[in-house]
Amino acid sequence: MDDFRDAAEPIDEIELAVEGALRPASLAEFVGQQKVRGQLQLLLDAARMQQRPPDHILLSGPPGLGKTTLAMIVAHESGRALRLSSGPAIQHAGDLAALLSSLTPGEVLFIDEVHRMARAAEEMLYLAMEDFRIDIMVGKGAGATSIPLDLAPFTLVGATTRSGLLPNPLRDRFGFTAHLEYYEPHELERVVERSASMLGVRMPAAARAEIGRRSRGTPRIANRLLRRVRDYALVHGAGTEADIETVDAALDLYDVDRIGLDRLDRAVLDALIRRFRGGPVGLSTLAVSVGEEAETIESVVEPYLVRIGFMGRTPRGRIATPEAFAHLGMGVSEAVLGFDDL
């Protein structure tokens, strides 16, 4: 089955094209994150009035909440070109030097997962962000010399899902830092309404709300679920109409339950409860029990289960809460007895 989150399967080019078409082009079109939108609007308006590039911007938060979209909006509303890169692609200082030296005046440079840049590149970025200059080392050993290279003024927009991994010297050089929060269901309903209109899908409010409830607080997931509902309606003869029954049937087919849990979420909870009596159990042991990588469990499954109160993290390991037992239709005593009977 499809995984609607961010760590399992690569997105094909068609999916990326559709996601790109659904992105809002301005802050006025951007749904949710009201406080961040207001702060960004002030920053952009002030830069426009002073005829200078906006300050460097750091956007942090879980995947799928709109960090890349906001970077595109910053460039669009500033009337500047946008250059896209990512931290894992910048593994040498030379990679960063080549990127920075090719920027045009006022250009917006977006670096996704900025915390994953190589340390040497990070240190070069300090000077570039502060003084729009880099020092290039030529030669080796005693004969090495440093050649300063002036850069065109630019705006760096960095995105990170793990802001705690950013070194303080880099974090301090951003003029504005924003943390994006998970969306409420009513906000996701507005996201679905806008995207459905762009995709030519007619949906009643109840159907839009149902997708919003099952989208884990994430617009990217809401848009993907919407596209699967559209596909289901098309294949089963409903055309561009998608009512609540169509939404239920489509999402049941893709193993997305009423609160947004999918196959892997339920497998983790089932293992935690049925095999380990609700825990505590170590992350690596839990990952092996469901046949997944520990990093996938930690970065993809855990955050949502912890946020909705189904899982807890303790010094001794992961535990299932009473709410998780109830969701799987079990009492705590039933799980313990079932384990002892094995």
Rank of each mutant, 00 (worst) to 15 (best):
R162I: 00
R162Y: 11
R162C: 06
S163N: 10
S163E: 14
S163M: 10
S163Q: 10
S163G: 11
G164Y: 12
G164D: 12
G164M: 07
G164E: 13
L165D: 15
L165R: 14
L165S: 13
L165Q: 14
L166Q: 03
L166F: 04
L166P: 02
L166T: 00
L166V: 00
L166Y: 04
L166D: 04
P167T: 06
P167Q: 07
P167R: 07
P167N: 08
P167F: 08
P167W: 08
N168F: 05
N168D: 13
N168A: 15
N168E: 14
N168R: 14
P169C: 02
P169N: 10
P169H: 07
P169M: 01
P169A: 01
P169R: 07
P169E: 06
L170C: 01
L170D: 04
L170H: 00
L170P: 02
L170Y: 00
L170I: 08
L170N: 01
R171T: 03
R171F: 04
R171D: 01
D172E: 08
D172F: 05
D172V: 01
D172T: 02
R173L: 01
R173H: 01
R173P: 02
R173F: 00
R173N: 04
R173S: 05
F174L: 04
F174A: 05
F174Y: 01
F174Q: 02
G175D: 02
G175C: 05
G175Y: 03
F176Q: 13
F176T: 08
F176I: 10
T177R: 09
T177N: 10
T177I: 11
A178K: 05
A178L: 07
A178T: 04
A178M: 03
H179P: 03
H179N: 12
H179T: 11
L180R: 02
L180P: 02
L180Y: 07
E181L: 12
E181M: 10
E181H: 14
E181A: 13
Y182S: 13
Y182P: 14
Y182T: 12
Y182M: 11
Y182V: 13
Y182I: 09
Y183G: 00
E184Q: 15
P185F: 09
P185T: 07
P185H: 07
H186N: 05
H186I: 05
E187S: 10
E187Y: 06
E187N: 08
E187Q: 15
E187L: 10
L188P: 07
L188S: 04
L188D: 06
E189G: 13
E189W: 10
E189D: 11
E189M: 14
E189F: 08
E189A: 14
E189P: 09
E189K: 15
R190V: 12
R190E: 15
R190G: 09
R190Q: 15
R190P: 10
R190I: 10
R190K: 15
V192Y: 11
V192G: 05
V192H: 08
V192W: 11
V192I: 09
V192K: 08
E193F: 11
E193N: 12
E193L: 12
E193D: 15
E193V: 11
E193M: 12
E193T: 15
R194T: 08
R194S: 02
R194Y: 00
S195N: 12
S195R: 09
S195C: 13
S195M: 09
S195G: 09
A196R: 07
A196L: 02
S197G: 15
S197E: 15
S197H: 14
